[in-house]
């Protein structure tokens, strides 16, 4: 049963990603992307990571993608025109893509299951995912967490500084 769900979600994510790239209307691209984000949230749910699933929808679908839509709409982009390509050489590109695919295959073959921490699926289910994530994030990984928040703060201050009108002194 779970395999079927995973198969559907994974297949949908791949298909929707292709549709994002192939859509000629940029707004439609953003919409396919929205659907893809929702499916990714479904994948998180399948992994018992309900907090991540909700955050995925709130942050990516609710904030980032709305800003995408904003930009796409305000730029008033028209449908992409179909024009003849100026450059040839697609066999070469295909070769590169095939090469990457082979490397990926090698990497996946060399994949080893990492060491198991104290948070098994049962432990997470018992403590609820939100609590487990919070505990680990604010005790074990407090330094990376603080660094990430500092980087975000710097980005926010930078954005405010750039957007602010120059005041006469």
């Amino acid at each position: 049963m779970v395999e079927w769900f995973f198969g559907y979600l994974a297949g949908a994510v791949i298909l929707l990603s292709i549709l994002v790239v192939l859509s000629r209307n940029p707004v439609h691209s953003v919409l396919w992307m929205l659907l893809m984000f929702l499916h990714v949230a479904g994948l998180y749910l399948l992994l018992n990571a309900e907090f991540l699933a909700a955050t995925q929808v709130i942050v990516y679908a609710g904030a980032i993608l709305v800003l995408f839509l904003f930009v796409v709409m305000l730029l008033n982009l028209k449908e992409e025109l179909r024009i003849k390509r100026f450059t040839g050489g697609w066999p070469f590109r295909l070769l590169i893509a095939a090469g990457i695919l082979i490397i990926l295959k090698k990497v996946l073959d060399g994949f080893k299951v990492g060491f198991k921490g104290p948070w098994s699926i049962e432990a997470i289910e018992q403590a609820t995912h939100t609590k487990a994530l919070g505990k680990v994030l604010f005790t074990e990984y407090i330094l990376p967490f603080e660094i990430a928040s500092l980087i975000l703060l710097v980005a926010i201050i930078g954005a405010v500084f750039l957007a602010k009108k120059r005041l006469r002194t």
């Binding site: 707004v27 919409l31 929205l34 929702l38 309900e50 907090f51 699933a53 909700a54 955050t55 929808v57 709130i58 679908a61 609710g62 904030a63 709305v66 839509l69 709409m73 609820t128 995912h129 939100t130």
Partner: peptide, 23 residues
């Protein structure tokens, strides 16, 4: 377990209805 977050997520998806209707 994440009822509150679920409502916030659903309301953020609901925004798309408004934006897309306008566009």
């Amino acid at each position: 377990n994440i009822g509150l977050l679920f409502i916030l997520a659903a309301s953020s998806v609901g925004t798309y209805g408004i934006i897309l209707a306008g566009w």
